[in-house]
């Protein structure tokens, strides 16, 4: 007994020693690399390509932050995390930033001691079923076997949804998206449930995506966003305003194509402050003037990132919907750069 508690304490103490170190930005600069937590593989959001290079919607956030802080969008060490391991990885200091379609909830923000730096995708939990089942509504799923990624908010939403509709189900807990896909396709579960964007991304990798439908019910609000550890506001600010810079760039029409030209100076003071030709916003963050320019130039603005990875013309094929700019009736609204 003594020994196991001792060793446990040793491990934890080792873990905590990492946390108590200096500011995250200094650590990242000293290391020359950003440790960024991503999924173990979800096409469109974060997945390595044939050459082992990570690509995707969440990956672009990591690259933008790396470009802003280190000046090199490739100075990122991607750490694949599962729904279960992601928070421990962030809390222990193994990663500096977690960009892994993680839902912003009260308890994660307050009780788990994390800081969500914004929302990069407004999502909701949905259900996918094979067309051959003939199901048209989630309320017809009484008695169904449901594959679900363990350690996620979807697990709790699912329990609530079936309880409030007074129908039964059989949960099959699964560690990663790949396992869920295998079990779902083999018919070991009738339904796969996760965020609707994740369902679309998973379906895109099927041999016959048309044989599967995503049911109309969206049973929860899932604002997905990147997060950092609580208690290091400087680092939180850098991550937050990098994300805001990507969103604002789309609003102001700054794209990876015209950014070099706009960076020479424009008539629009907002763009000038964003790109560093006016004001000292970069210095306030502890970075240089061109931080936002590099972040945007890395993979383009929010709209370009969306279109390239998960947009309607990509295999995942998601519409902008709630994720359009506020000027187009969506929820994306970056605070002013002033």
């Amino acid at each position: 007994m003594n020994k196991s508690v001792f060793l446990g304490a040793l491990t934890v103490a080792g873990l905590m020693a990492g946390v108590a170190a200096a500011g995250t930005m200094d650590d990242v600069k000293a290391r020359g690399k950003l440790n960024c937590g991503v999924t173990t593989g979800l096409v469109g959001f974060a997945a390595p390509d044939a050459n082992g290079v990570w690509n995707g919607f969440d990956v672009s956030v990591c690259r933008a932050v790396a470009a802003a802080v280190l000046g090199d969008q490739n100075a990122v060490e991607f750490v694949p995390t599962t729904g279960k391991t992601r928070f421990t990885a962030l809390a222990s200091g193994e990663i500096d930033l977690l960009a892994r379609n993680t839902t912003w909830t009260f308890s994660r923000d307050v009780d788990l001691k994390f800081e969500f730096i914004g929302v990069n995708y407004y999502d909701g939990q949905g259900f996918m079923v094979p067309k051959s089942l003939g199901v048209s509504s989630a309320k017809e799923l009484d008695g169904a076997t449901v594959c679900i990624q363990t350690g996620t908010t979807t697990e709790l939403n699912l329990a609530d949804f079936f309880r409030s509709n007074n129908i039964s189900y059989e949960p099959v807990p699964i560690e990663t998206n790949a396992e869920a896909q295998q079990q779902y396709l083999a018919g070991a579960c009738d339904v796969y449930t996760t965020d609707a964007s994740g369902l679309a991304a998973t379906r895109a990798t099927f041999e016959a995506p048309g044989d599967h439908v995503i049911l109309p019910e969206i049973i929860s609000k899932e604002p997905l966003g990147p997060l950092v550890r609580h208690g290091d506001s400087e680092w939180g600010d850098i991550a937050r305003w990098t994300l805001n810079a990507l969103i604002a760039a789309e609003e102001y029409g700054v794209t990876s194509a015209n950014i070099e030209e706009l960076a020479k100076g424009t008539n629009n003071p907002e763009i000038n402050r964003l790109l560093g030709t006016e004001g000292t916003l970069g210095e306030m963050l502890g970075l240089d003037k061109e931080w936002a320019k590099r972040a945007i130039a890395a993979n383009g603005n929010y709209g370009e990132i969306f279109a390239k990875n998960i947009g309607e013309n990509s295999p995942v094929g998601l519409g902008r919907g709630l994720n359009a700019q506020w000027t187009n009736g969506g929820l994306l609204y970056a605070p002013p750069f002033r």
Binding site: V19, K113, E155, A159, F162
Partner: peptide, 27 residues
């Protein structure tokens, strides 16, 4: 050291969560 670091993190040792509703199903 562990206790101090946990306290600094705002997470002192507490088993109170055992009384809270779990919220998930078990097959």
């Amino acid at each position: 050291n562990t206790a101090q670091n946990l306290a600094e993190l705002g997470k002192p040792i507490d088993f109170g969560f055992f009384g809270e509703s779990a919220g998930y199903d078990i097959n």
